[in-house]
């Protein structure tokens, strides 16, 4: 902008050109003005923290004394910390078990919904509701459903079939599966709606052509529907993994990571290390690990989906 002003003074361009320059110049200034507040805010509250996170991860810091440079000590500590590996492993199990199951269910439901039955919208509401509801509220509800006494809903159901009461969240072996069940229940709605939107986007002519060729419904499903849903399936997969690695509210309110760390996850470890033990350096190292995992995942997905964001 300032160079333009200099240009005008030294070169004395013809009036027409000068006016054009000032117009784009004025526009450019407005563009910066419009974008500035949000940009400054994000630079301050997202950009700066990322830099600070990375720097602090190489220090020892307890908030009382100034940070002390400690090299890669924090990362070495993490590499040798069985609880941190347990947390990563739990995130991994939740992703590998929970996501495919909820994706399969949501795909099946979306295909059924796509038949255009009556009462469609009521059904959609029921399935989507868990997604809109606060996770804290959902954790409270399931805490009660999983109640290990005879008055928990699931134990009532088990009792109806003559099965013994289960401990669910209180049992180190059942807690993680119980948490996964909640994530499946909560996650179906959004995945189903994305699948439904993408099913409705499939060109009907493909099915008509297949009809003429005498294809069966099963053939049509596996030869047309499934291949056409491939990109959206990948999209759902990646966003679900990214979301899964950010599970916190549920763990905090449902299990506190227990019993015996059986349900702890990486975000819960960050919370504990930073805000219960005040080992900020170590906690930022954990958050940098999380950051790297998620950024790599996101970049891969953007590459694969062909930079649709742009």
């Amino acid at each position: 902008m300032s160079t333009n002003t200099v240009d005008r003074q030294t070169q004395s361009a013809p009036p027409a050109r000068r006016r054009g320059a000032t117009l784009t110049q004025r526009q450019g200034r407005w563009g910066l003005l419009f974008a500035a507040p949000a940009t400054i805010h994000i630079a301050l509250w997202t950009g700066l923290p990322v830099v600070v996170s990375i720097i602090l991860s190489f220090t020892n810091y307890d908030m009382l004394n100034p940070p002390e440079f400690s090299g890669i000590d924090n990362y070495v500590t993490l590499a040798n910390d069985p609880v941190f590996w347990k947390a990563l492993g739990n995130n991994f199990i939740m992703a590998v078990v929970g996501i495919p199951i909820s994706m399969l269910i949501s795909l099946a439901l979306a295909v059924m919904l796509n038949q255009g039955l009556r009462g469609n919208s009521i059904f959609r509401t029921a399935v989507f509701l868990p997604h809109v509801t606060a996770t804290v509220a959902i954790a409270m509800i399931w805490l009660w459903i999983y109640s290990p006494g005879g008055n928990g809903l699931l134990n009532i159901v088990l009792g109806f079939f003559g099965l013994p009461n289960q401990a669910f969240l209180a049992s180190p072996s059942q807690a993680l599966p119980s948490v996964i069940l909640v994530t499946i229940w909560q996650g179906i709605g959004l995945k189903m709606m994305i699948y439904l939107a993408s099913l409705q986007g499939i060109d009907q002519q493909l099915y008509e052509a297949a009809d003429i060729d005498g294809a069966s419904a099963v053939q049509k499903f596996f030869r047309i529907t499934i291949p056409m849903l491939k990109p959206v399936t990948f999209f759902i997969l990646v966003t679900s993994i990214v979301g899964n690695f950010q599970t916190f509210d549920l763990i905090y309110n449902l299990t506190n990571g227990g019993p015996a760390n059986s349900t702890t996850v990486i975000t819960y470890q960050i919370y504990q290390t930073a805000f219960q033990q005040f080992r900020m350096g170590l906690a930022t190292a954990q958050s940098v690990v999380l950051l790297v995992v998620l950024v790599v995942l996101t970049i891969i997905s953007r590459k694969v989906t062909g930079g649709k964001d742009d």
Binding site: V50, F275, I299
Partner: peptide
């Protein structure tokens, strides 16, 4: 810059924000 910021999970920056 905006696209890059979108990738940053909140849990990765919560400590510096605090």
């Amino acid at each position: 810059f905006i696209l890059a910021s979108m990738m940053i999970p909140f849990y990765a920056i919560v400590i510096p924000e605090f």
